[in-house]
Design a protein around this nucleic acid. Structure first.
Lengths: 211, 211
DNA sequence: ACGTGTGAAGTCGTTCACAGCG
DNA sequence: CGCTGTGAACGACTTCACACGT
């Protein structure tokens, strides 16, 4: 009886590295490399070959002994695992400096994310067009989310408004939130929340600077 | 003989959490809370009390049994440990959408980081003023870095230029790089490089969405 | 021979649980 | 009493090392 790889028992760090593998593989494919060993993949990411093999093995048996991994099929597999083979409609709340930057960021579409709506509380900003989308008032949140079956939201707004908006997003049925606010969002555990905290990142660098 | 806490043997995750503790403590101070227990600090961050105590204990004995931690002195201690008690002059390379957003981001100064120069390769952008700073050409990198004793750089430029610029930064004496490029920077181990990869963050969320 | 997949060993980080101080 | 600091137990993740497929 073959041991079916249960994706759920993969360590969290392994899942994170899957994204990195995918990126390297896409780069290799662009260079017309058909096959790659765990060794060379590892070297490009400062990892060990064993780590690469184990990570991939959590999700299936993609490699061929004596050969390595076939690049293209592995890419398709990883995309399927990460869910980037389907386009995810995404909304963005808060079109300040950072919000505007992300709204015009060209890196989302190729990864399977499509911004379909922008929101802001500020009446002055509502109606403005940014990156092909018209900024909507938060009042329209419910119907827009329902109309597009949206489950992913990006939060780029002032810290003091973030929790309120998060509460509304949860109520409206959002399932995952990418939070750029320096704030721990309080959400039910059925909703996934990730934070990107610029100040924390800089502080970490600063620490290593002082040895 | 008292066991002197060696900051170097603190687990990396603990160091990361120090930033989070600092943020909570600052928030508590604003609310005129003078003292806090590991328990309540932990609750505000979804951690265990033991974790908080152990993390802090790596760096010193800040707490008082039966009382907890005095907020204000602990803040000062953590700032000292993280190095945010001194202002770090920082440069930013690449004033595209994201770069402009960060250049005008108001969250850096209060955390001890001060943008002192902006750079871009694009001749059209050189000379423009963004957030009180004039965009300089990359040719001026050397003298500006030397003049301000700069050791920290933020990279917000297209992926294909990132490694070249990183090489130059290293040569000029930069010690730490915050990289917003979806690229593993190749730098000597004397230089600290951290990456904020938006696509990876979204992919992780996406994965949890698909259960 | 080369290179994967994987149990086993080892390392790192977290949680437990309690002695001891205020 | 409440609460810290900390060895010891536990669990999570990584690395080792090798059997087996090509």
């Amino acid at each position: 009886m073959a041991t079916q790889p249960a994706r759920s028992d993969a360590p969290n760090p392994a899942i994170k590295r899957l994204s990195l593998y995918l990126r390297q593989l896409e780069s290799l494919l662009k260079d017309d490399v058909a096959t790659v060993s765990s060794r060379t993949l590892a070297q490009r990411l400062d990892l060990t070959d064993a780590q690469v093999r184990k990570d991939l093995a959590y999700f299936g048996q993609f490699g061929k002994p004596g050969v390595g991994y076939h690049v293209e099929p592995l890419i398709l597999n990883l995309r399927g695992i990460l869910g980037t083979d389907r386009i995810r409609p995404t909304i963005l709340v808060g079109v300040g400096n950072l919000g505007r930057a992300l709204a015009t960021y060209q890196g989302f579409q190729p990864k399977g994310f499509e911004l379909v709506a922008l929101f802001d509380t500020h009446p002055k900003k509502v109606g403005k067009k940014i990156g092909g989308l018209v900024v909507q008032s938060l009042g329209e949140l419910e119907e827009t989310v329902a109309a597009h079956q949206i489950r992913l939201a990006i939060l780029t707004l002032p810290a003091d408004a973030a929790q309120d908006v998060a509460d509304r997003l949860v109520e409206v049925g959002i399932r995952a939130i990418l939070n750029f606010t320096p704030l721990r969002l309080n959400v039910p555990k059925t909703v996934a929340a990730r934070s990107v905290d610029l100040a924390v990142e800089l502080e970490q660098l600063n620490f290593t600077l002082s040895e």
